[in-house]
Design a protein around this nucleic acid. Structure first.
Lengths: 217, 217
DNA sequence: TCTATTTTTTAGTCTACCCTAAAAATATTT
DNA sequence: AAATATTTTTAGGGTAGACTAAAAAATAGA
C-alpha cells in the first residue's frame, strides 16, 4: 500500500463505491488527476483485488477494499479529533493535516492515540469513527434537504470540505445545535433555520445536501 | 522536498556532514541503499544547492541543507516527546513512528504540538530539540568514553538506535541518573558504573561512545 | 439512425526512486 | 612502482505515479 493507492481507495469509498459503480470521471474530479492516470490506477487496484471494474462504466470496492477504506477513515478521523481537541485547530483546519498523517500511522500509534483521546465516537464535523475491526456503527440521520417546514432537529454531521466548513462558520451553523426549519423557498431557493434562541440563519439550497440532521430531538 | 531526500539530508547531517566530508560508503551503510543510488541522490541534491560534492571524496551540507536538517530533527524530536509522554511509548519505541511523522508535519502542526507539549528542550533520549529558526542551543556534554575513573556525572544523552536503547533498558542505565565511573578495564574492556544507591552496572566499551554525560553534577 | 459530444482507454513520455554489473578512480599492500 | 583491493561513477533497467495526445467506445441530440 502506498499513500496514492490509499487516497484512491478512500476517494472511491467517499463517492459511494461500496454500493454503486463509481465512474472514472468522478475520480478525475475528486483526485484532480488525469483520466489516463485513473485508468492506470484502476488496473493496479484490480490486480490487487481491491476493486471490481466494469470497462467504460466504473469501479466498485471489494470487501477487502472496503475494509482498507474504513481503516483509513478511522485513522483520518482520530487524527482530526486530536488536531481539534488537543492542538486547538478550527474544524475547517483539521482536514489537510489529517490527510497526511493518516498514511504514516501504524495501528499501534492509532490505538494509543485513540485511548489518549478517550475513544471518541465522532470526529469534529460529526463523522462516525469506524471501529477497529472496520465496521461502522450507523447513526440515524437525515439530509437537511429532505426535511419539511416545522421539522425540528439537531445538526448531526456536515461535509468536511474546508470551504464548506468556512461557510458554516460564517453562517454560525454549529454541530449539535438545535433548529426548526421555518422556511424553504421554492425553485431550489434558500432555507431558513431558527435556533432555539430565536436566531435565524438563511442557507443555500445546495448546502442543505451537505448537512445531516437528527430529527429525534 | 520528498521523504527520501529529507532522509538523505538527515543522514548526511547525522554523519557529521556540516563540518566534515561524508563518504558515499558511509551513506550506503546508513541508508541501506546501493552505492549507485547514493551517487544519483548526490547529483539531485547538488542541483538543488543543498550539498557540495567533491567527486570520489564525499558530500557536505550547505547552509541551506543544514537548515533543512535541523528543521527535520526538530520535527522528529518533538514527535518523540509526544509519543513518549502522551501516548506512553517506551523510549526505544518512539524512533520508528517519529521517522514517518516528521515527513508529513506542517510547520503549523509542529508549532501547535510544541506548545501542547510545553515547549520541551530535550527528546526522550536527551537530544536537544533545535529551535524554530534552525539554530541549536548547545549543551555541555562529554562522551562517557572520555571519562576517567572516579569521575562523577549524570547521563545527558544516549544514541537513539532502537537496539541500543533496549540494551540500556536491560542494563538499567537511565537518562538523568547520577553515576560514578568506578572501573575501566584496559584493552577496550568494559566500564563499571556505580549509581548513587550503590547499584553497579557493567557496560561494553563501544556503548561508552554512544552515551554523553554531564560532568557538572 | 446518424452525427456529435463525452468518456474511457491506449500509446508514448517523464520524474523520482531503486537496482545490478561494469568501468574508472583512488587507496593500500607488497 | 606495480599489483591488488576498495570506492565511486557510469550504463542500462525496473516500478510507481503522473502527464498529453490520439484512438475507441458509449451516450446524447437532431
Amino acid at each position: 500500500m502506498t499513500p496514492n493507492k490509499e487516497d484512491f481507495i478512500k476517494a472511491i469509498y467517499e463517492l459511494g463505491g461500496h454500493e454503486q459503480v463509481v465512474s472514472n470521471k468522478a475520480l478525475v474530479k475528486a483526485l484532480s488527476i488525469s483520466a489516463a492516470s485513473v485508468t492506470e490506477m484502476n488496473t493496479r487496484l484490480l490486480k490487487e483485488g481491491l476493486i471490481t471494474h466494469l470497462p467504460y462504466q466504473g469501479v466498485q470496492l471489494t470487501d477487502k477494499g472496503l475494509r482498507i477504506a474504513n481503516q483509513l477513515i478511522r485513522k483520518h478521523r482520530i487524527w482530526e479529533v486530536f488536531l481539534a481537541e488537543k492542538l486547538g485547530y478550527d474544524w475547517n483546519e483539521v482536514h489537510k493535516d489529517a490527510d497526511l498523517l493518516e498514511h504514516v500511522s501504524s495501528d499501534f500509534l492509532i490505538e494509543r492515540l485513540n485511548v489518549f483521546l478517550g475513544e471518541p465516537t465522532f470526529d469534529p464535523h460529526g463523522g462516525v469513527i469506524p471501529n477497529k475491526d472496520g465496521t461502522i456503527t450507523e447513526i440515524d440521520s437525515t439530509p437537511l434537504i429532505e426535511c419539511t417546514v416545522d421539522d425540528q432537529f439537531k445538526i448531526q454531521e456536515v461535509d468536511d470540505q474546508e470551504e464548506f466548513l468556512e461557510y458554516l462558520l460564517y453562517k454560525n451553523v454549529q454541530l449539535g445545535k438545535k433548529y426548526t426549519l421555518v422556511d424553504v423557498e421554492p425553485y431550489d431557493g434558500p432555507l431558513t433555520l431558527e435556533a432555539v434562541d430565536g436566531e435565524r440563519t438563511i442557507i443555500g439550497h445546495k448546502a442543505a445536501f451537505k448537512i445531516l440532521v437528527d430529527k429525534n430531538v
